[in-house]
Amino acid sequence: MRVLVVEDEVRLADNLAAALREGPGFAVDCAEDGEVGEQLARQGCYDLIILDLMLPKVDGLTVLRHMRSRDNSTPVLILTAKDGTASTIELLNAGADDYLSKPFDLGELIARAKALIRRGKGASHPVFAIADIEVNTLEQTVRRAGRVIDLSPTEYRILEYMVHRPRVIVSKRELLEHLYDYNWEHHSNVIEAHISNLRKKLMADSDQQPVETLRGRGYRLVADLEGAG
């Protein structure tokens, strides 16, 4: 999952990015002002945007309104140092999905970020069960038929992204966009290598491959395996 943090207080943005990378293993980009934030958000490759309200150049509320007016439906979590009912109502009406008052708890921020990403993809439970595969996004563990499968962080992130979009063809480009931030040198063959490893690990004890490869188009998580369950 890839998150955009728009926050002018650089130290806070750094801490947020570090926590989101270390905790749920998200890819994180940071923007220091509203203008850059809006440009980045326009690319549409984010699964969540964390937006500060008081920003140089363009303030957070304006960024949010512009985004929503362009039909960008990426979940937005607002960070605000002002609390008051009026501004809360204004924020939610402008299209914010959630908000946190500063100073916030990092653990709470991560939990809310995960919940927003989940809901943004149409899921409500943090534990996904596709056929006999169970992905627990809280513990970041994967089981197949009850047996724990040990995945590398990148393999896990690929699978996590795919369980959020079952039965949909996910292209290599989409995976690259949503799993890596701008700090990474990325090439599509990186994805291929990780997918290959993931497929091997999932097939260790089973005879049916849940990750389907569609040549030239991408990958798909098959939801209904024959004889599964």
Partner: peptide, 17 residues
């Protein structure tokens, strides 16, 4: 209040991280 809350948020997040 805004400035102080932000400053506290920085310290708190550093320690929590």
């Amino acid at each position: 209040a805004h400035e102080l809350k932000t400053a506290v948020a920085v310290v708190k997040s550093s320690l929590q991280l």
